[in-house]
C-alpha cells in the first residue's frame, strides 16, 4: 500500500472518529429544545456532553488539517468551492461552542433562551451541511482541468444532497437520544426513550431513501459492483441490530450498533469515492484523486510518522476522559454548564 492510500485511510478514520463522537453530541444539541422542557432539564442535557463536545469537535478540525497537509488540492478545491456552506458551518460551530460556555453563566431567561437556540441551530446545521457536502463530493460537482470548482451555491442543493443532509440530521438525532438515555435517569431518560420510539422508524425510512438515491445518483455500482461488499452490508445489518436491541430495552447495545452503523456508512462513502477524493461532473479526467491532489512523498512520509505516533495517544486519553465521566447525570449532579 502506498502512502497516498494510507492517508486516504487515515482521513477516513478521522471522519469516522468525528461522526461517531460528535454525532451524538450534535444529536443531544438538536434534542435540547425538544426534551428540555425546563431550565434544570436543559442543563442536565447539556452537561451529558459538557466534558466531551470540544474534544469531539477536534476530530473534524484534524480531518481538515490532515487534508490540507496530505491532499492540499482537495482542501483548496473543496473549501473554496463549498464556500457558503462552509461559512454556515463555521457560524454554526462558533455559536454552538460559545453557547455551551456562556448559557449558564447568567440567570437572565432571555440570555439562556438565546444561547439554547444557538446550541440547537449550531447542532442542527453541521450534520445537514456535512451531509450535503459529502453527497456532492461523491456524486460529483463541476470541477475544471485546473481543479477549480466552477459551480455555484445552488449546484450543491440537489435532491440527493438534501436527502443525505436530512438523513444525517435524523440519524444523529436518534443517536443523541440513545446517548441521553444512557447518561441520564428518571424522567429525562424516559422521554429520550419515547422519542427514539417515534424517531426510529422515521430514520429507517430516510436511510432506505438515501440508499436508493445513492444507487441512482452516484457511480456506486461501477465502483463497488452490484453486490457492494461487506462494509455497506455490515452498515445495514448494524442498523437492524440497533433497532432490535432497542426493542429489547438494551440501549447500551443499541447505541454501540448505531455507532458501528455510522462508522461503516462513512467507510462505505469513502469506498465509493476511492481513489478519488472529489468527483468532477465536468469530466472524469478532472476528478481529484489521491495522486493528483496529494502532497509530495516526503511530506506524506513525515506526516505518516507524526500521525501514527500521536493518534494512539489521542485515543487513550480521550477514552480515559469518557471513563472519568461515565456516571449518569441525575437531578442531584453538580452542573457546571
Amino acid at each position: 500500500m502506498d502512502l497516498n492510500t494510507l492517508w486516504f485511510i487515515l482521513i477516513t478514520v478521522l471522519y469516522v472518529g468525528f461522526f461517531v463522537l460528535e454525532g451524538f453530541d450534535f444529536g443531544v444539541g438538536i434534542l435540547l429544545p425538544i426534551l428540555g422542557k425546563d431550565d434544570k432539564t436543559r442543563r442536565m442535557i447539556i452537561n451529558t456532553i459538557g466534558p466531551h463536545w470540544d474534544g469531539n469537535e477536534v476530530w473534524l478540525l484534524t480531518a481538515g488539517g490532515a487534508s490540507f497537509a496530505a491532499f492540499p488540492h482537495w482542501y483548496a478545491t473543496m473549501f473554496s468551492g463549498f464556500y457558503l456552506p462552509l461559512f454556515l458551518l463555521l457560524v454554526a460551530l462558533i455559536i454552538r461552542g460559545v453557547a455551551f460556555e456562556f448559557r449558564s453563566k447568567d440567570e437572565n431567561p432571555l440570555w439562556r433562551k438565546t444561547w439554547d437556540w444557538a446550541i440547537f441551530v449550531g447542532s442542527l446545521l453541521p450534520p445537514l451541511l456535512l451531509g450535503v457536502a459529502f453527497a456532492n463530493i461523491v456524486k460529483g460537482v463541476p470541477i475544471d482541468a485546473n481543479m477549480t470548482y466552477t459551480g455555484g451555491f445552488f449546484n450543491l442543493l440537489n435532491p440527493y444532497a438534501l436527502i443525505a443532509g436530512l438523513t444525517s440530521v435524523v440519524i444523529f438525532t436518534v443517536y443523541g437520544g440513545l446517548f441521553l438515555s444512557l447518561k441520564t435517569t428518571g424522567k429525562l431518560h424516559d422521554s429520550a426513550i419515547s422519542l427514539i420510539k417515534k424517531a426510529g422508524p422515521v430514520s429507517a425510512a430516510f436511510i432506505i431513501a438515501l440508499v436508493i438515491a445513492t444507487y441512482l445518483s452516484t457511480d456506486i455500482t461501477a465502483q463497488l459492483g452490484i453486490n457492494p461488499g461487506m462494509i455497506p452490508v455490515g452498515a445495514a445489518l448494524a442498523i437492524l441490530a440497533a433497532g432490535a436491541f432497542f426493542n429489547q430495552q438494551r440501549q447500551g447495545w443499541a447505541f454501540t450498533m448505531t455507532a458501528v452503523a455510522i462508522s461503516l456508512s462513512v467507510i462505505s462513502l469513502f469506498e465509493i469515492l476511492f481513489p478519488r477524493v472529489m468527483v468532477s461532473s465536468t469530466s472524469a479526467d478532472f476528478s481529484l484523486t489521491i495522486y493528483n491532489a496529494s502532497s509530495s512523498p516526503y511530506t506524506l512520509r513525515v506526516m505518516t510518522i507524526v500521525a501514527l505516533t500521536l493518534v494512539p495517544f489521542v485515543l487513550i486519553y480521550q477514552g480515559w476522559s469518557y471513563w472519568v465521566f461515565r456516571q449518569r447525570i441525575t437531578e442531584k449532579s453538580v452542573l457546571e454548564y
Binding site: V58, G65, Y75, S295, T299, M303
Partner: peptide, 16 residues
Amino acid sequence: RYVGDIFGAPLAIEAL
C-alpha cells in the same frame, strides 16, 4: 495549493 505541502503539515500537527 502552492504551499500546502509545507504549510498544511504544521497545522495538522498542531491539531493532532
